[in-house]
Design a protein around this nucleic acid. Structure first.
Length: 884
DNA sequence: TCGTTCACG
DNA sequence: ACGTACGTGAACGAC
């Protein structure tokens, strides 16, 4: 059967352009739109396997629509030059893929697509339209579906008739009426002023078309609305006409002309090479080889010498004479605390050696080389390398560059951090990914012999080749200090913390588990009784049916998949039925039991300790994250959960847990970078900041601040740090949006410096494409100029929040590095165990308690001097629970 | 594998 | 009128 794909070329090019940062290739040609277009094209062809295809473009400036409405698309900004110059390249791309393209004077791409869709559908051709423009929803019917780009280029949403009905409650053709009523600012279609999507949908639910709405104008709710409709009815009808896609374009070709020939990889490769699209190039190669049944990225040009005996090693050992080698240590699993070392490879860029670990054990020479600080090693994942070797008694030294950390600093938003991805991103010769070689999930199996040696050799060679590029990039973007002065030393500190681990009181954990289990069983029975039936309380679906269908409670909020049963909804429903409170409590206890009791139990090692992993290359802001288990979200807010902290105890008898936390670090950072005198004053005088904000915002004296006022001021302070919005604050405080906006206005009047900062940081993000922390850590914000409101607003809030959250992260990281050094210098036995974003946890022998308290406070407070003081509180106890 | 919920800062 | 609070990870059910 035939399958036709129709692509709205301009729309996809626009999407690609705004979704990706302004890339250029080495000759200075902008390529981001072409790149995005290519990604989308490859994905569509791969996933949909069309037999026929056409990419339609808009031709020229005017269309037949301008005859009836001259201002059509009048507000649209001119295509930016950086995009315009890429459009011919997009054409070239399509030629390389041998995909037909078409444009016709006087018509838009929509019209061409519409005509073909309506013509081919009835012939039994399955048709899929690809666009970023919701207007095309009107073309959907039983033969035609629409793939709408959502975020980026490759994230899409698929619409058929039912999906449109589910989302809008409209038939595809009513999309035109929707636009007639609400207009479309991007096309300068007026609609009826004051009518937006919400009102329009409400109207269409009752009167199915613009004409019907006009005919029943007297029955519409609200005098104002009636007036508006009467006054602008002509305009609404015109808008509808403009929004209607013309499906009778005189085309001189039929379906046959759109047949997709078998693709020509060489032609495509040639184009990608010219554009310098290394990743895509390797993907083409991969697919072709897959067809040729090897299924793997080629590594044929890597030469590797597999060394299996000491005598062979002696022959090969001269490579170790060099100052700098790349080193890759392979382990049996991701988690270094449970992993065994398999073997290692080294590379000088030309020669690669592979040594199985058994040989490393035998060879004192290699162990000495590993521990020699003067022998520089370039690695991927310094922390893991250090941990797996340390577990073998090898204190590796001379790790002088980490490719993983470098790639993270250069773009912390990038989620693909595997070595093969980094290599591809920086245009080096591709290597296979671990998944390709080892297999995925349950099928993962590390090969032996030749295949393993080759893969590891490819990795160390890749490290050797990409390291200089990354180093240069770090220097060029002023990130080198952050790399060598902060993240690399921190990696070692984290390695020690992880290896040290936290001791767990198993008996107490067991005890708490039994207690919670009883509580859970009791609640379960009570809920079944109140519901009159048994069901799975953990299933949102079943719970929703009980609450809203069976018990008839009002539906306050819905999710994509059904009723929302989240805590904030349930709290509102609690007064209406006693079951609700039980469910809330059941959820709370259930969470404690499964995540914290059972979850932690699973992670206790043979040494009675938990060794979390602090991930240094995950967050976009520079914070750490913690996994297996996550020890950064152990309960504290509710007493019932807080008791979990009783199981975290010192690993030596007579020692203590010491916890030190920064007080209000983010607001202090804000006071500093915003240079707001009023806010700085509050901190210099060490005021309770939420009370102070309440006094300033409400204009009352300290003793007049009510607890409500303080609570609201606190929420405003939170909101400010998150990148304030009226809606967000309204939700946080459960008040009207208007009221929330007034709070914000008053806040900005009180702290004008903060207002100036918020404006200027967004402005700066628009100009530079990124924001930075106080130490220069960057985060790129490509959607800051997006057309889509939601996407753009998100980027704006991120621009406001990231320098604050990120600077706080810089500060505590710096404190950790300095503290680790100071503790070593003073020969202290105390150990740093955990970091939880604004606090550090230690275990400390009795004799060191006083010294440690002073030292920790001093180093943390002075880690990075600001224009306001940093304040650190310390607490000591026999468990983490008591150190509060 | 995705969506929802909820634990933390 | 638009549609969100910032940053994470784990468990669970549904598909």
């Amino acid at each position: 059967m035939s399958k036709l794909i129709l692509v709205d070329g301009n729309s996809i090019a626009y999407r690609a352009f705004y979704a990706l940062p302004l890339l250029t290739n080495s000759s200075g040609v902008y390529t981001n739109a072409v790149y995005g277009f290519a990604m989308m094209l490859m994905k569509i062809i791969e996933e949909e396997k069309p037999t026929h295809m056409l990419v339609a473009f808009d031709a020229g400036k005017t269309t037949f629509r301008h005859e009836s409405y001259q201002e059509y698309k009048g507000t649209r900004q001119k295509t930016p030059g950086e995009l315009a110059e890429q459009l011919p390249l997009v054409q070239e791309l399509l030629h390389a893929f041998q995909v037909p393209t078409y444009e016709l004077a006087n018509y838009e791409a929509d019209d061409i697509i519409g005509t073909l869709a309506k013509e081919c559908g009835p012939q039994g051709v399955e048709t899929l339209i690809v666009s970023g423009d919701k207007d095309l929803l009107q073309l959907v019917d039983e033969h035609v579906e629409l793939l709408l780009t959502r975020k980026g280029v490759t994230e899409t949403e698929r619409y058929d008739v039912q999906a449109i009905r589910d989302k809008y409650g409209l038939s595809p053709l009513q999309i035109i009426d929707l636009k007639g009523l609400m207009g479309d600012s991007s096309d300068n279609i007026p609609g009826i002023p004051g009518v937006g999507e919400k009102t329009a949908l409400k109207l269409l639910a009752q009167y199915p078309s613009v004409e019907e709405v006009i005919a029943h104008v007297d029955e519409l709710p609200g005098k104002k609305l009636q007036e508006k409709v009467r006054e602008h009815q002509e305009q609404a009808l015109l808008s509808k006409k403009l929004a209607t896609i013309y499906t009778k374009v005189p085309l001189e070709f039929g379906l046959e002309a759109l047949q997709l020939p078998e693709r020509d990889p060489e032609r495509i490769a040639e184009f990608f090479k010219k554009m310098e699209f290394k990743t895509l190039l390797s993907r083409i190669g991969k697919q072709d080889q897959a067809a040729g049944k090897t299924g793997q990225t080629a590594t044929s040009d890597v030469t590797v010498r597999e060394v299996t005996s000491v005598s062979e090693l002696v022959e090969a050992q001269e490579i170790f004479d060099q100052d700098t080698l790349a080193l890759f240590v392979e382990a049996t699993e991701d988690n270094p605390h449970r992993a065994e070392v398999i073997g290692l490879s080294v590379s000088d860029g030309e020669t690669q050696l592979y040594l199985p670990y058994s040989l490393v054990e035998e060879s004192e020479f290699v162990r000495d080389w590993l521990m020699d600080p003067k022998r520089h090693k370039l690695v991927y994942d310094l922390k893991k390398t250090q941990i797996v070797l340390a577990n073998k008694g090898i204190e590796v030294a001379g790790l002088s560059f980490d490719v993983l950390l470098a790639a993270y600093l250069l773009d912390p938003s990038e989620s693909q951090m595997e070595l093969s991805d980094i290599i591809a991103r920086y245009g080096k010769e591709p290597i296979p990914s671990d998944d390709e070689v080892y297999g995925k999930g349950a099928k993962r199996k590390v090969p032996t012999g030749e295949a393993l040696a080759r893969h590891l050799a490819a990795k160390s060679k890749a490290i050797y080749q990409v390291a200089p590029t990354l180093k240069q990039e770090l220097t060029d973007t002023d990130l080198d200090e952050l790399m060598f002065g902060l993240e690399m030393p921190l990696s070692s500190v984290l390695a020690d913390m992880e290896r040290q681990g936290v001791h767990i009181d198993k008996d107490r954990l067991e005890e708490l588990g039994v207690e919670l289990k009883h509580s859970l069983d009791r609640l379960e029975q009570e809920i079944y009784e109140l519901a009159g039936t048994t069901f799975n309380i953990n299933s949102h679906k079943q719970l929703g049916e009980i609450l809203f269908d069976k018990l008839g409670l009002p539906v306050l909020k819905k999710t994509k998949t059904g009723y929302s049963t989240s805590a904030d909804v349930l709290e509102k429903l609690a007064p209406q039925h006693e079951i609700v409170e039980k469910i809330l409590h059941y959820r709370q206890v259930g969470k404690l039991y499964s995540t914290y009791i059972e979850g932690l139990k699973k992670e206790i090692g043979p040494d009675g300790k938990i060794h979390t992993r602090f991930n240094q290359t995950v967050t976009a802001t520079g914070r750490l994250s913690s996994t297996e288990p996550n020890l950064q979200n152990i309960p504290i807010r509710m007493e019932e959960g807080r008791r979990i902290r009783q199981v975290f105890i010192p690993s030596e008898p007579g020692w203590h847990i010491l916890a030190a936390d920064y007080s209000q670090i983010e607001l202090r950072v804000l006071a500093h970078i915003a240079e707001d005198e009023q806010l700085q004053k509050a901190f210099k005088e060490d005021k309770d900041i939420h009370t102070q904000t309440a006094m300033d915002v409400f204009g009352v004296a300290e003793d007049e601040v009510t607890s409500l006022m303080r609570r609201q001021a606190k929420a405003v302070n939170f909101g400010i740090v998150y990148g304030i919005s009226g809606f967000g604050l309204a939700r946080g405080l459960d008040i009207a949006q208007k009221e929330a906006r007034e709070f914000i206005d008053r806040y900005f009047e009180t702290y004008p410096g903060v207002k100036r900062y918020m404006d200027s940081i967004v402005e700066q993000a628009r100009r530079d494409g990124y924001v930075a922390t106080l130490s220069g850590r960057r985060r790129y914000l490509p959607s800051i100029n997006a057309k889509n409101f939601g996407e753009r607003s998100f980027a704006e809030r991120t621009a406001m929040n990231t320098p604050i959250q990120g600077t706080a992260a810089d500060i505590i990281k710096l404190a950790m590095v300095k503290l680790a050094r100071a503790m070593k210098e003073r020969n202290l036995a105390s150990r740093m165990l955990l970091q939880v974003h604004d606090e550090l946890i230690f275990e400390v022998p009795e004799a060191e308690l006083e010294e440690m308290k002073d030292l920790v406070v001093a180093v943390m407070e002075d880690a990075l001097p600001l224009s306001v003081p940093l304040k650190v509180d310390v607490n000591v106890g026999e468990t983490w629970y008591e150190a509060k």
